[in-house]
Design a protein around this nucleic acid. Structure first.
Lengths: 154, 154
DNA sequence: CCGAATAATGGGTCCACACCTATTATTTGC
DNA sequence: GCAAATAATAGGTGTGGACCCATTATTCGG
């Protein structure tokens, strides 16, 4: 009686969407314990991986509206997870820099996320997980590429 | 410069969530052309696959709040995609029945969704898509099973 | 040097979704 | 027969996310 309609399950976008949402929710739960949301994680990752960014750069790298970047960065600054500083060369710009706390918090988040993964992908073997990742990376690259073509660098 | 932070890409839940969201959005776009949303599709699928349901059954099958079922069914009824009728045996219940229109609209939606799939999964070979589906089905079953254990049949 | 472009920001809107409560009609169990 | 349980329903709430516009400060281009 609680069986999912086969008409839905045979639709791969539906499966992707459902499992994706489950993944999203679980990660979000962990982040919430630290009063963070997904964008906070993304911004931290960008800063730790690529170093300081001007806000405009964060917006374009993460494909997020620039006015939303402001809010996310603001939260992070209040939490002491980033430093903001006016650019000396171009005083319109604000450079966002990771702090030591960024790195450690990001590391913790990553570890949380790996736990989520362990739970979520439990039915898959190690090989399958790698395969899944490989496929998803390609799909991800594909959709990002498409998006770039359509939205000409807002 | 627009490269996604590797710290994120190495997290499989992140990849799942992102690709899932892309899938979700694209399907939702197509549905929107018919003034439908995802839940409408799910309800139609349940009705066409398993026949008439009492609303309570829809809620439990689809894991949606029963008060939300009312609204979704209401929309579908207005659009002529379902019939509602008080159950003669138990007049508290309302039985929701698919109409001929249900079947054809669901078929169209499925075809739309297959187009979305074609687009979304373009980088994957046919074999890989099958593999992906297989893995996602297992993950989906796994998370549903977990959810059942936790939420005792609301 | 002045007008146009650019960066950040504040202050919104809108949407889908999840969730919750109270009420009404009806049925069931004792 | 009556209290408790059940089904549907109306009418909320809160949240995250996406998006949009006007304003201010600053720089750039001609």
């Amino acid at each position: 009686m609680n069986e999912t309609p086969p008409s839905l399950l045979e639709l791969r976008p539906y499966l992707l969407s459902k499992t994706g949402k489950a993944a999203r929710n679980r990660v979000a739960e962990r982040l919430a314990e630290r009063d963070l949301r997904l964008w906070h994680m993304a911004v931290l990752a960008a800063l730790v991986d690529f170093g300081p960014h001007v806000q405009r750069e964060l917006a374009s790298r993460l494909a997020i509206d620039r006015s939303d970047v402001v809010k996310v960065v603001d939260d992070l600054a209040v939490a002491g997870l980033v430093d903001r500083a006016r650019d000396a060369d171009d005083r319109r710009r604000v450079t966002v820099t990771p702090t030591p706390a960024s790195r450690s918090v990001l590391a913790e988040i990553q570890s949380d996320t790996r736990n989520v993964q362990e739970d979520l992908l439990a039915p898959l073997t190690e090989d399958e997980r790698t395969q899944l990742e490989d496929m998803l990376r390609r799909v991800y690259a594909h959709i990002n590429h498409e998006a770039d073509g359509q939205r000409p660098s807002r």
